[in-house]
């Protein structure tokens, strides 16, 4: 890994929520260190309250780390003398899509909502128009430009929210459980959009989720537990550690579960492909063909 490729570099990040009386509460994130490269598709797993959302909110300084160093795009954002302009620049570069689509749309018309971010950047009107049209086009919502957001389906609202973020042309987008409130088809819409942004536009993507099947689509998986980074690897590497995952309240995809149990019965299945049905099918087929010979 070449150093210049690293986009996000976190070193010993800590964060604690404070109670009303100012006394420190349970630390939500402890000594968290990770490097994320440009163009990576990273899934972040962890049960509710594991600290994964806190981690995301630190990356664009919605929360300020209690201690530690964070460098985003070569700029150290944990510096004491960070200017307001630098903060705005950070938020422009690291966009965020939240869980509840209703609570992140600001305007009563779709295109005006998408324009909200770029408007805050103070762009020219022609440039605003271009970006809004382009962003709506990318998420496939052009035909809804004049609609009222509250009449859209959950998946559509979430795509509008994504358009609002990509209209700022960020380098990285964080999805904070953005599929949790959607039905299967809405989830599919959002996941396809995420993948498209990563593959076709080279955006760095962090998908915070507790759906294992979603994590299987990423290039890399981080598992967070109790505010610490517990595992870091490819989906296959992570899902191979089934017992450890179960110990922290997570499960593995059904396919992975199946391979584990078959291996437990003494059936030889060689290979690492255990995260997706396609890879898993290859594995089983391979074993079957070997038997029939």
């Amino acid at each position: 890994m070449i150093l210049s490729d690293i986009y996000i570099h976190a070193e010993n990040l800590c964060f604690s929520y404070r109670e009303g009386n100012g006394k420190e509460e349970n630390p939500a994130l402890r000594d968290f260190s990770v490097e994320i490269c440009e163009g990576e598709y990273v899934a972040v797993l962890g049960h509710n309250g594991s600290g994964k959302s806190t981690f995301a909110k630190l990356l664009n300084l919605i929360l300020t780390p209690t201690s530690g160093h964070l460098t985003v795009g070569g700029v150290e954002v944990t510096r004491e003398d960070l200017s307001d302009e630098e903060i705005l620049n950070l938020r422009k570069n690291v966009g965020m899509v939240f869980q509840n689509p209703d609570n992140q749309l600001v305007a009563t018309v779709v295109e005006q909502d998408v324009a909200f971010g770029p408007e805050n950047l103070g762009l020219e009107r022609a440039e605003l128009r271009r970006r809004v049209d382009d962003a709506l086009e990318r998420v496939g919502m052009t035909q809804y430009a004049k609609h009222e957001p509250h009449r859209l389906s959950g998946g559509q609202k979430q795509r509008v929210a994504i358009a609002g973020v990509i209209a700022m042309m960020p380098k990285c987008i964080i999805f904070d459980e953005s599929t949790a409130m959607l039905d299967p088809s809405g989830r599919r819409e959002v996941l396809d959009t995420i993948r498209m942004l990563n593959r076709d536009y080279g955006m760095t993507v962090l998908n915070i989720t507790h759906y294992m099947n979603e994590a299987a689509e990423a290039d890399r998986v981080l598992v967070i537990n109790d505010g610490r980074l517990l595992m870091d690897g490819t989906p296959d590497e992570i899902f191979a550690r089934r017992e450890e995952l179960q110990a922290v309240g997570l499960e593995v995809p059904q396919c992975t579960e199946l391979v584990h149990r078959l291996r437990g019965l003494g059936i030889a299945l060689k290979g690492d492909g255990i995260s997706t049905p396609d890879a898993c099918a290859d594995l089983i087929l391979h074993a079957y063909e070997k038997l029939s010979k």
Partner: peptide
Amino acid sequence: TVDEAVEALRALLGLGA
């Protein structure tokens, strides 16, 4: 369900094993 799949595949793959 995973249980049913395990059963079916064991019957298929386990025989040869």
